[in-house]
């Protein structure tokens, strides 16, 4: 009798667990369904593409952020990196690099993209060095680079906007606007880029030694070090990757607007953290999935755009977004507890 009732208990908890585990996905379906019903134009192909493009920007940052958070860190600097990288792209398009010898180096689109990404990676590298070699807490280190990168962005133009980033056919930079505006098979290039980056990130997380090391560092840093994981190198990589993701977003925004403004990307870091957490990434490290983060980014993005379409006040939007994030974490805690109980019951 005991066994039977125990078995029944277990299966019903398992069902609850399954729903809880898929909660971000369930939330996505609910949010999507609600707006599809309530906001008339929500399902139009045009709108879906617009929403996707919005979501893609946050999703890039959130993918980089997910790795950082899995190692037990945080990267507050991504929003500022977006801004600085947009300014760097604008500068290179408008002015090139003045060598000071009477001539100027001009760049084509590919070169500009590479340079901007290197800038992002270098800032990520600085974050990593501060955190690993100089033992600065991630929150403080990236807060510092947040200010420095933002300051550098403002200095680059004296606070002004770089306008008319159309590029110059002479230098091969007129294709710059395609990054944000171009389509491939009727889908925006930025979405394709996100798909590629997210697939690579998901592969690294699940199927490479590096990915496993990222989880191990977040789960137990000392244990990982004693097991031969090069903890410093792992952390360095994740901050560099996060910086690179931010640089991509900077490029896309500069291209979409065909202008770059030094305030670009302000508070983007918070949306990225929110997407990661909503997708099940644990702030204490060791747990999180790229797929979850992508879904989390979509939930936040659809929620935001949907409410705009319904004419919800911007103030209420902020309140609702906050409530959704807190609810997600509460449900996560419930799931963890339940899961621990199920495992204990299955213990041999």
């Amino acid at each position: 009798m005991m066994r039977v009732s125990l078995g029944h208990d277990l299966s019903s908890t398992s069902a609850t667990l399954l729903i809880l585990r898929l909660r971000t996905f369930v939330a996505l379906i609910l949010v999507f369904g609600f707006f599809a019903y309530a906001a008339p134009n929500f399902l139009s192909a045009e709108n879906v593409l617009i929403v996707s493009k919005h979501v893609a920007l946050n999703a890039f940052l959130a993918v980089g952020m997910t790795f950082v958070i899995i190692t037990g860190g945080i990267d507050l600097s991504v929003g500022s990196i977006v801004g600085l990288c947009a300014m760097v792209a604008g500068w290179l398009l408008l002015y090139g690099i003045n060598t000071g010898l009477g001539w100027t180096i001009e760049f084509n689109t590919i070169e500009i993209c590479l340079i901007v990404m290197v800038v992002g990676v270098i800032i990520g590298w600085i974050n990593g060095i501060l955190i690993t070699k100089l033992n600065v807490a991630p929150f403080i280190a990236t807060l510092g680079t947040l200010y420095m990168a933002r300051g550098a962005a403002l200095l680059s133009s004296d606070g002004r906007t770089f306008p008319n980033l159309n590029g110059n056919p002479e230098y091969g930079s007129d294709s710059f606007k395609a990054i944000g505006d171009g389509n491939f098979l009727a889908i925006p290039l930025s979405i394709w880029m996100l798909i590629v980056v997210a697939l690579i990130a998901a592969y690294v997380a699940a199927r490479t030694p590096l990915g496993r090391h990222i989880y191990a560092v977040g789960g137990n840093e000392r244990g990982a070090a004693l097991s031969g994981v090069n903890v410093d190198r792992v952390k360095l990589y994740v901050y560099m990757f996060s910086g690179m993701c931010a640089a991509l977003v900077g490029l896309i925004i500069a291209s979409q607007l065909q202008a770059s403004h030094p305030a670009t990307g302000e508070t983007f870091e918070l949306n990225a953290i929110a997407a990661a957490v909503l997708g099940g990434t644990s702030m204490s490290g060791g747990r999180g999935k790229i797929g979850g983060t992508i879904i989390g980014a979509f939930v936040i993005g659809i929620l935001a755009d949907g409410m705009v379409m319904m004419g919800v006040s911007a103030f209420w939007q902020t309140v609702i977004k906050g409530a959704v994030i807190v609810a997600a974490v509460v449900i996560d805690q419930v799931q963890q507890k339940l899961q621990a109980r199920v495992i204990l019951q299955q213990r041999v």
């Binding site: 496993r212 989880y215 789960g219 137990n220 000392r222 244990g223 747990r287």
Partner: peptide, 12 residues
């Protein structure tokens, strides 16, 4: 503290 990553699977 030092030997295991508690939240990881036995295999990992």
């Amino acid at each position: 503290r030092d030997g295991l990553v508690q939240i990881m699977a036995i295999r990992e």
